[in-house]
Amino acid sequence: MDNKLSEICKQLDQLALDILKLCEEQVKCRVKLEEAMKPGFVHIAKSRYIMGNRTVCSLQLPTEDSAEFDALTTVVPQESITDSEHRGFKLVETPKGQDTSGKSVLRRRKEKPESDASTEAKEENVKTYVDPIKWFGVLVPQNLKMAQNCFQSVLPLVVECANVQGELQRVQMKYQKLLKEKELLS
């Protein structure tokens, strides 16, 4: 009984240390994210200065009435090999040069030769990708492209932050579970 209690106490100490380390890592990660986002904001402000106040704003962003399109960057869950438990995220980027916004317009213009169920199903699965920079015009300043690059490089940091936070939550849950066990024993 005493052996089990001391074992639980040891585990609790280790988990408490892990929590503190993860908290520090979480703060560091956010500061890194903040530092990485700063030049992006500056480039957005510069392009706003060049193009005009209302040309780089939320009015250019797509709304509910816009045509549907898919995200260029998504995340997939990373599962551990030993168990199917969720172990964080991994970034998945669409390979460059897959802007299909023009294609979708052409597809609509063309008459359908015959409506086949299988071809319709295929069309439903076709993904539509749009280069977001085109929402702000065709001839955009270099700064907007730099802002885009900046925020693209921020995304791996976002995933890193999410992974650290997820790990912290997992360790916290484990700690609380062990704490309850300790209370039952003592």
Partner: peptide, 9 residues
């Protein structure tokens, strides 16, 4: 605007 430019939208 930044994150959507990054391609998450």
């Amino acid at each position: 605007v930044g994150f959507l430019l990054g391609g998450v939208g």
